[in-house]
Computed example of a mutant assay.
Amino acid sequence: MASAQGSHIEVTSPVPRELWWELARRDRDVLVTQTPTWLDCLCDAWPLEDVSRHYRFASGAELVVPMVRRRSWPGRLLTEESWPGWGVGGAVVPDGAPDVDQARLVFDDLASRPALRVAVRFSPRGPSVWDASVPEGFASVERTTYLLDLAGGFEEAWTRGFHSSVRQGARRAERSQATFEVDRTGRFVPQFQQLYEESLVRWAEQQHEPLALARWRRLREEPPRLVAAVAERFGADCAIWLASHEGRPAAAIVVLRHGTHAKYWRGAMDRSLAAPVHANHMLHRLAIQDACAAGCLLYDMGDARPGSTLARFKESFGARPVFSPAYYRERLPLTAADRYLREAVKRLIGFRNA
């Protein structure tokens, strides 16, 4: 455990787990991806290590910023992230939001890290004080998350949130020959992986992307072992909802839960089996109903590009777009170089956004 102390702030890294969990219990808005369990899942899937940071201010207020970095890389070649590429990270803030001075001290500490790149993405439900405190030297990447408010319960979501086409689709699914199951032990991980591979082939065709490139990119961005790690570490808080048709897996979604926050994390399907029976409408209806029964106040449907097919699908359940930018400081223009290379490859292969 490393600790640094100054006249205004004390920083401890990595954060002792008992302390992190204690502060998370006192933050009623903490997200699934802000928990130590999520960090452990990331470290299971990639060669990452915990460099989370605990801040204690002169007033006695404290907060935690989850953070990881690659293992065994020289310090000045590292990236430290919270964690723009793996969901929403940002500050776990018990007992209310920090003030502007405290937020600025956190940014100043992150800016002083020796890594080539330091990035943080704050909760879309988090206080705007972070946006007001970003110092010079930090750039931002726009992100949009889609959130469904469950405060009114399932009947409210069903009648006022769900579009009529979703309600109609769910009713047709009920009358179909499809079966719908949920498992919280990881038993459906193989079926999900099978459906994900089939989805990958479909996505590659839609985007005019060579399948080999799509597989390499997905493997780099999300190793298959990540799903198994999530199912194992979250246990009963990881629900895999599976639709089957004609005795074969048709569609599946993975929903994680922490406190009053439910998160739709991953989905995959065999379109030829899922579409005729409206499997995805029914899977989300069941997952949302289950979240309401468990006392959840929010169903987080994740990121999507506004105006895209995926965004419209999420909006059809009543989810609303919330802007959630990621902030980063770089000593070399890594993000710009990555963006340039991606765009060059897209132009070369004639990539089409879905």
Rank of each mutant, 00 (worst) to 15 (best):
Y264N: 06
A268W: 00
Q206D: 11
R113D: 09
R69Y: 02
L273C: 04
G6Y: 05
F154G: 02
G295I: 09
A337V: 15
F323I: 13
A91N: 05
A243K: 05
V11K: 01
A119W: 00
P14L: 10
A170N: 08
G247R: 10
G350M: 06
H54V: 02
T335M: 11
P135D: 07
L110A: 05
M1A: 13
A304K: 08
S140V: 08
V277A: 08
W130C: 03
V345A: 10
V322S: 12
F122P: 06
G267K: 06
L77D: 09
V68M: 07
S324D: 11
A119P: 03
A115V: 07
Y340W: 15
H8V: 11
D149E: 06
V30A: 01
Y146H: 13
L286G: 01
H8K: 14
V92G: 07
R71G: 09
R71V: 06
Y328G: 02
G137A: 12
Q206S: 12
A262R: 06
L348T: 12
E205W: 05
R220H: 14
G85W: 12
C238F: 04
A274C: 04
F317R: 05
V129I: 14
R266Y: 15
E49I: 03
D338G: 15
A274P: 04
E205M: 11
L116I: 10
K314I: 08
I253V: 14
S199A: 05
A214P: 04
V189A: 07
R56Q: 13
L23G: 02
A173N: 03
C43G: 10
L147K: 01
R125G: 14
L148I: 11
V30D: 00
P210I: 08
H281R: 08
F313S: 03
R312C: 08
H8G: 07
G350I: 08
T37F: 00
A304H: 10
P14W: 08
R117C: 09
A231H: 09
A311R: 02
D99W: 04
E142I: 11
W130V: 02
W21K: 10
A229M: 06
A91V: 09
R352S: 12
H54I: 04
Q193Y: 04
A119L: 01
E156L: 03
S13V: 03
V189H: 04
S140P: 00
V277H: 06
R320E: 15
P36Y: 02
A97P: 13
R167Y: 10
W130R: 05
C43H: 07
D95A: 10
S59A: 11
A178L: 04
Q207L: 07
A239Q: 09
L48W: 11
